[in-house]
């Protein structure tokens, strides 16, 4: 519950697929927007796709070319955790994405996650260090 899973077989090596999902220029291209990504645990990410608003967050885990975990949220602060797994297969690379909301229970109850976690001086929520810490605590 509170998790979605999608997957696809890409006509590429894991290295090529990794590059496509972590290189900001390539990300911008296939997402059709702008992307910034500081590829290291704790690094910032910002992705803006026309019509979908801006998502900001941070990287939790990087294991090239196999696994990338990050958190993101739109402005209304529904933070979710995204796990991308790349696995070589005959004919290409299988990409699996699981997006989950470990904090979903809060907003399901009409409680604003951002205000609760980030406190009164909330900046863009996913950028607040305290929020990062709490997200990580909650995820485990």
């Amino acid at each position: 519950m509170n998790a979605n899973s999608s997957e696809i077989l890409l006509p590429a090596t894991p290295e090529e697929a990794w590059e496509a999902v972590t290189d900001p220029d390539q990300l911008s291209e296939w997402l059709g927007g702008s992307a910034e990504l500081d590829l290291r645990p704790g690094g910032d990410l910002a992705i803006e796709v026309e019509g979908q608003g801006e998502r900001r967050g941070f990287v939790e885990e990087v294991e090239a070319p196999r696994r990338l975990v990050f958190w993101w949220s739109t402005e209304d602060a529904e933070a979710s955790r995204v796990e991308l797994e790349l696995e070589p297969e005959p004919g290409g690379t299988r990409v699996r994405v699981v997006e989950s909301r470990p904090l979903a229970i809060l907003d399901a109850r009409g409680i604003e996650i951002g205000s609760w976690l980030a406190g009164p001086a909330a900046e863009p929520p996913a950028a607040a260090p305290e929020l990062r810490a709490r997200m990580l605590t909650t995820a485990r």
Partner: peptide
């Protein structure tokens, strides 16, 4: 599903 389809087209 849409994003992965776009990634597939890209690659």
């Amino acid at each position: 599903d849409e994003r992965l389809a776009a990634l597939n087209r890209h690659l």
